[in-house]
Computed example of a mutant assay.
Amino acid sequence: MAENTVTAVTVEVPSYARAFSGRMGQTIENAVQMALGAFLRLAVRSHDSDPSATLSPALDGAYELGRGEARQGRTMDALLSAYRVGARVAWRELSSTAVAAGLAAETVARFAELVFAFIDELSAASVAGHTDELATTGRVRQRYLDRLAKQLLAGEAVETLKASADEADWHPPETLTAVLVAEAQTRGLAARFGQATLQLSEDLPGVDPSESLAVLLVPDLDGRHRGQLRSALQGRRALVGPARPWALVESSYRRALRARQLQVEEEIVDTEEHLVELVLTADREAVADLRRHALAPLAELRPNTAERLAETLRSWLLHQGQREAVAAELFVHPQTVRYRMTQLRELYGDRLDDPRMILELTVALGVSP
């Protein structure tokens, strides 16, 4: 049951996936076995025995787990989630055994009450340990972590960053990804991404304090792991920068900031999926000048006519001149496409066969005016 519990927690609480590997994983499994043993002893004890003697070792272990979370710079959200998952898995297996043994419904109900009361005791002990640790070294470390996050966003020298990381007892991951999210939506979020996650909500470079934004610097969720990042952000409005070597995460942050200018409706804006838009909007004045230059032949037409021809030209470029595909996209007859393209060739002449002109038109029509 302890193995099943640890497996379930690893799956359902992503920030523990790596923490449960190696020696730490065995330590956690031992703690789970101790807790289950204490519960079973509690369940079968005689009514006149002292429950505190039975519970004490498990509660002491839970207290130390809470302190450990604080030392790692994490909130209690992940650990409490782990307790809830553990309680569910344990109760599923224990209740199956109880029902199979033919216990009365009243006894099974009392058994359930004991399970969740016990989890509440463990949770309370861990919260107490977490609170006590924060009252001492935890708060000091958090100040060091906040300073490190500010230095990373400011693009400080690697030597400075390494010194601050050592002082904060923070072990640099391979990569960091900047995530911008409303400060009100950050509760419990950092805990889901692992102990190396940094979070900052004050003095963000390039952000007005009135916007109430926070940035999370998320470790090692690049490449095939990026889907986990998006999954954890569901239900939140977030801007996600690219993964960068940890000391260069400033560039990820700057790109996430730039993504605020994109006119997209997605709840989670992943900059890796909007590279074209980011490039084309990097210099909006230059884009406006390019549009005026490339679309100059349409300038003398009536606005509605110019808009229809520009729309047709854009589709013609994207579909590489395939008339039927253009007609399908624009919901018009292929003859209408032919007629419009005849007009455009009269306006542009041989320039529609010039690769440079094609490039300029493709870029110019690739962004909204």
Rank of each mutant, 00 (worst) to 15 (best):
G223Y: 09
A256P: 12
A232H: 01
S164R: 02
H225R: 15
G241S: 06
E167F: 11
L204T: 10
H225K: 14
E167S: 10
R260G: 08
D222H: 12
Q185H: 10
E250G: 14
L221F: 09
L176S: 08
L189A: 01
L213E: 11
A191P: 02
E174T: 05
A190H: 05
L262M: 05
P173G: 09
V264E: 06
S231N: 11
E174V: 09
P209M: 05
G206R: 03
G194M: 09
P242T: 08
S251P: 00
A238K: 00
D203K: 10
L176C: 12
P172F: 09
R236W: 07
A247S: 11
V264Y: 04
Q263C: 00
L233C: 02
V179L: 08
A256G: 12
R224E: 15
A238L: 10
E202H: 10
L198M: 02
V249H: 01
P209V: 02
V218C: 01
S201Q: 06
A259S: 07
Q234D: 12
G223V: 09
A182F: 08
S164N: 07
A214S: 14
L189F: 08
F193N: 00
V179K: 06
R236C: 04
W170Y: 02
E211P: 00
L262A: 04
E202F: 03
W170R: 02
A259M: 04
L189K: 01
A182K: 10
A259D: 03
S212W: 06
A191G: 11
G223C: 05
V181W: 01
D220Y: 04
L233P: 02
S210K: 14
Y253F: 08
R244A: 15
R230V: 09
P245F: 01
V240H: 05
